[in-house]
Design a protein around this nucleic acid. Structure first.
Lengths: 218, 218
DNA sequence: CGTGTATTTATACGCTTGCATAATTAGAGC
DNA sequence: GCTCTAATTATGCAAGCGTATAAATACACG
């Protein structure tokens, strides 16, 4: 076993696994030291790989960063959708669960904000990234608008597209704004306070109750 | 005028002027190419100064960046406060004007978002930045809470601190969220749509009218 | 009209970065 | 077990970074 200046031993991994590992390592770096801390060498170190390999899987570093961004956004979307799947049937419960999921762990997390903010900074300069972002945003808002529509109907309220569009914009703003506050300074809020505040505000905006079981309201 | 390899001519400026110029140049860089584009050399170029001078006025580059961040936040705060000064006496009109100012030009601007996002990315890693941000955020929210309290009282509604706090959190989220949407994709909204949506949402949350003149409501 | 000094320029150093490329090797297929 | 190739390591480079420091100069003051 005496080895002086030996090469690093390695295993060949599947392409998918390696990409995932590299993305995960990137997210670790960003989480700990911000976007500036995500250098190819540091990422490689975390992935237990040498720096050169990154370029084997990603044409340039920015492609890896972009993939990492998409992974985070996708992960958040999936987590919110998961909350929907395990929710009750009543549309109001579903909207309630959706909001709570977005305003609680693990979605409302400073690490997510760091990556998101870093990426937003690039959006302004890179049109391709701007497009990717807009798609994500509109997708989220469309999902929200559908939930709102069903909740309104379940409460016996009209749900014209003209109104649901504006409602979706407002509710989306409430979620985004509270998410932001929670990510940036979660410690100055009580446990669950932001989620409760969000639910109450959305109830007021939509003029319906999102807790049809307990607090009955037509 | 024949000069080969002459030194750059310069004028001595007051300390305040130089600091302001350097900060302005920094903001230009960040707005155009993100935080990564704000290098000492590029900043110096924009300020029509050589790079070394930056360190004469700021101990390190990060100090300049921090000063620039504070300048942006301060500028937005001042702009919003200006809108208050030229508003009517009725507290509901004042809150209305405050919201409209934050959801219109020049505050709701992609450049401001770029700056803000770039800095927010650092907040997570740099404790000093985090403190600066928290102060700004709490200052904004406090101002908002005072406005809300007065508006509620003017409408004959109770304004207990327990409630105004939560209202301030929610209204702040609405403003932040809509500001974000407008900065990121202002072109997909009609003129004034976001401001109107914000006013309507806030009216719903506070259960008062913010247009006491025209649309009378107790 | 000199003179002193605070301000500004100029230059260079040591690091780190992203990227390219050559050398190696693990592991599948025959 | 051999062989071939795709995956991985290792090395180096050119560029750009922040910072330190010495040299130059504008300009207030006497």
């Amino acid at each position: 076993m005496k080895q002086t200046a030996t090469r690093k031993s390695f295993r060949r991994e599947g392409e998918d696994k390696r990409r995932e590992d590299l993305i995960a390592a990137t997210l670790e770096c960003v989480a700990e030291r911000g976007l500036a801390g995500a250098t190819v060498r540091e990422i490689a170190l975390r992935a237990d790989v040498t720096a050169g390999l990154i370029r084997y899987y990603f044409p340039a570093k920015d492609d890896l960063i972009g993939a990492a961004y998409r992974a985070v956004m996708n992960r958040m979307t999936v987590q919110a959708s998961d909350a929907l799947k395990s929710a009750a049937d009543d549309p109001r419960d579903r909207l309630n669960a959706f909001v709570k999921a977005n305003l609680g762990q693990p979605i409302m997390d400073p690490n997510n904000l760091s990556l998101w903010a870093g990426f937003i900074g690039m959006v302004h300069a890179d049109p391709a990234m701007a497009l990717a972002h807009r798609d994500g945003y509109l997708g989220f808002r469309d999902e929200l608008e559908a939930l709102i529509r069903e909740a309104l109907l379940a409460a016996g309220k009209p749900a014209e597209p003209i109104h649901t569009r504006r409602h979706a914009i407002a509710v989306n703003a409430i979620i985004d704004g509270l998410w932001l506050e929670g990510c940036l300074a979660g410690d100055i809020f009580a446990e669950g306070e932001l989620a409760e505040t969000g639910i109450a505000a959305i109830e007021a905006v939509l003029a319906i109750s999102l807790n049809p079981e307990k607090g009955g309201a037509i």
